[in-house]
Write a protein that binds this DNA or RNA. Structure first.
Lengths: 134, 134
DNA sequence: GACCTTGTTAGACAACTGTCTTAGGATACA
DNA sequence: TGTATCCTAAGACAGTTGTCTAACAAGGTC
């Protein structure tokens, strides 16, 4: 029974996000930030979560003066990438296009974003058609 | 300590997918399908998973002759919807556009899909600009 | 020195997941 | 009728997640 690969559960993700925002934080700083954002956790809970993140190798800690300072090792970009890939694999037959379609159909974009999306798309199509041109 | 809302773990999702594909299935049918797809599970494992799905209200069972026949109650569409929403909320600040951009940038679409995406987008932009036109 | 305040550590504990073993009820066929 | 099949039921058991209590160390304060 192979050990499961490490995942990032919701609660850990919440504290990781704080580290991305602040760059680094002590338990107490993270706690304050999370409290401000509505999470009613105890100090020990946050400490545990940071600890678990560290055993998974996703953050590092560095003792400074009184308290440990935690820094993210994994970036938001990486986490997003993994999550999206896994979603596409599991629910969109590995076809990112299906997910894009789904998103556009069910969530209207605001005009600025729509424009940006279009330009990315045009660029992509431009290359493709220049390349195939049969 | 509020009970956590029911989720659909990976293993359950795999059997649910079989139900979506086949429309309905007995434990054995699901097992065969999963085996064919490479999942090396025992009969009892599949039975347990279907059972858990049923307690979560995501499938129903109906005794036919020998065995129970399970049918999905929740659709693939619904599950996709929820997953996408939660991904967007958790990692894209609730902005679906960011996810769309990310997808387009990191996963090139094939031309047919690109075309389809563009048409959906054009339609959307058409409405918007007609509507705001200030 | 006796006490707070902050911090860390260890561990508790229930719910959820991933998998399976085993016991027991039907069905089927020799 | 006995035995091989196939099914459900019950529950085991370890690993993960969500959250916390409680013990204990180090730095100030009176």
């Amino acid at each position: 029974m192979a050990k499961r690969p490490p995942t990032i559960p919701d609660s850990e993700l919440d504290v990781l996000k704080v580290l991305w925002d602040l760059g680094q934080a002590t338990v107490r700083e993270a706690l304050e930030t999370l409290r401000a954002a509505g999470r009613q956790w105890s100090y020990a809970t946050v400490a545990t979560l940071l600890d678990r993140l560290e055993s998974k190798g996703l953050v590092t800690s560095d003792r400074r003066e009184l308290a440990f300072v935690y820094k993210p090792v994994i970036s938001g970009q990486e986490v997003r990438q993994k999550r999206v890939n896994s979603l596409v694999d599991k629910l969109y037959q590995g076809e990112p296009g299906l997910l894009v379609l789904h998103l556009l159909k069910s969530h209207p974009l605001d005009p600025d974003q729509a424009k940006e999306v279009r330009s990315v798309l045009d660029q992509m199509m431009g290359e493709k058609s220049r390349k195939k041109e049969r």
